[in-house]
Nucleic acid binder design. Sequence first.
DNA 1: TTGTATGCGTTATCAT
DNA 2: ATGATAACGCATACAA
Lengths: 359, 359
Amino acid sequence: MSGRRTTIKDVASRARVSAATVSNVMLGRRGATADVADRVREAASALGYVADRSASQLRSGKTKVITVLVPNLTDPFFAGLIAALERCTQAEGFDIIVGSSNADEEVERQRLAALLSWRPSGIVVVPHRDDFPNRAVIDHLRLPYVVLDRAAPELPTDAVVADNREATAEAAAHLLDHGHRDILVVTSTFRLGNIRERFAGVVDQFAARGLPPPPSLEVGLTFEMVAERMAVWLAANKRPTAFLTVTNFVTMGVLSHLGQIGLSVPRDASLIGFDDYPWMRAATPAITAIRQDVTSLAEQTWALLRRRMEAAASPPQRLTIPCQLVVRDSVRRIGPPVDLLSSAPSRRPRRASAAASRS
Amino acid sequence: MSGRRTTIKDVASRARVSAATVSNVMLGRRGATADVADRVREAASALGYVADRSASQLRSGKTKVITVLVPNLTDPFFAGLIAALERCTQAEGFDIIVGSSNADEEVERQRLAALLSWRPSGIVVVPHRDDFPNRAVIDHLRLPYVVLDRAAPELPTDAVVADNREATAEAAAHLLDHGHRDILVVTSTFRLGNIRERFAGVVDQFAARGLPPPPSLEVGLTFEMVAERMAVWLAANKRPTAFLTVTNFVTMGVLSHLGQIGLSVPRDASLIGFDDYPWMRAATPAITAIRQDVTSLAEQTWALLRRRMEAAASPPQRLTIPCQLVVRDSVRRIGPPVDLLSSAPSRRPRRASAAASRS
DNA sequence: TTGTATGCGTTATCAT
DNA sequence: ATGATAACGCATACAA
């Protein structure tokens, strides 16, 4: 056989119809005689014909492509987001083109430009910085896009984010309810608004119980840095009875360091992590963690994007997705619930998780 | 501004040159006067022009697209592979389109067909089954492709796989050297050749020391199934002194079950896992594990694919990438090295890791 | 060095 | 219900 690809013409001649008819049958368009439609389909499958997307897109102007740009393809959170998005889009015939910015402003700009050359129907981006300066590149082309996970409150774009603040408030409540008031909030960096929100949620809950804000510690992005910063902090301060770690990586780093210095969880210290992954179930003890609803995050993003793809003119919308505290074995009760404002120590101001916007 | 996209003609008229010249300048083709080139580039950036890929591909016949199909986008191993591949291809201007087959034969076929409509320059696929019946779909279009990670030995295609057999042989040696001879090899399923290879490596090493093959146990794909199968097996058999778990998920499942029944690693049982992830470093104890070189896997795949993209006619090649045993704290010494064939118990038949093909 | 003309494979329009 | 034809935006061969 020749190296030439089978085109619509090959199918047409085999089915003894015109190219237009083949196109119509394949797209399920206009009414075609059952006989003709069968011949076309038979010819198409016999020849292994698949329409060329470049030609199709060029002519129709419709791309059926969604591009997704994340800081890092390896991070299980982003990988999960992409997987969930793929599930949404694939059902409607959209393909996904992925890119990663390596958490670098310049790379992000370049990758964005490259992805834009596809003339995608829509774009999903988890920006490197949550003020997302590179959005100018997309705005210029007037393409529909949704900012996912990292979106500064004042960002005038469609956005979908987890309810970070409410989630950590609930986690803090869980800790306080188990008698912990000496808590260290361990963060990766405060550069990201969603990380700041996570800390703010803890502060909220402490304030609600008449307590001053707990301390926080930035530990950076490698196991080594975490160990070093933790060691310094622990040498200079009284050991907290509980840790709240605001990312999966920080959770691993803190756990690793505690193990190294011979501290046992939850005997010597309790711990709640932000983000929930299967290993936390396997760990000893199993880790109590805040689960982000990745599926819901993706579904809402897709819904928002679809709306924007259909009707461009509507005010930007911001969706906040509730998280869920998964209670396992890494928090130990060390005393009665802590609540300075309540006479009855058993009172628990457990706010039901709400999807209220907080912009 | 209009909703129309800026095309090459807009740039041409603004720069007062022909479309052909714009094309040539943008592609860095034929010599152009510095003056003209500058005008073109100025116009292009002023207008925010990015060439339409559909049109470009249709005309040139060159796509600069690699499609990647994996069973599951969520699995950190596949996610890591995609990330590494993206690093390779992006450097040369190729974009990646991803798809997942959900480990289903029919879905795989459909997704493959969808990806093929892009007329990609190359395809990387981690098939659902390692005999990859769906490759007929690709063969029919004569597109270059490489099978990654799961490739039956007799598969007559380019393939890149980890040296599963050598890796587990080394792990088994490590266990035997620490006095363990009652080992249970815990597998997900034996349907996949690479899983069978992992078991075979252990058998190799046992045979090399004059020992009969150790038992193995298939535990399936959920935590619940793992717990159930493990419970049944442990009730019926003497408890092994060590476990060798052949996938990340199985490692988590076994660890979780051991924790639940109150067995401590490595005090009550030692453990080596196949696949190494950051959480294993954070776990207590840190888990000794076999690390697959994901970067190398991806690089070799890309190299093979490039070769195939350039020169179609050469016999299929199979590359085997060595793994590495990362020794941490989950294996305890319980006695002298076990080696029935050696008079000196200290002898260790440690074969240097080799990239030899074993097809 | 630059411009003109052509065609890639498909879908949309219009004619039949 | 089906066919003929044009056009999408670009890259290329060739003319100038």
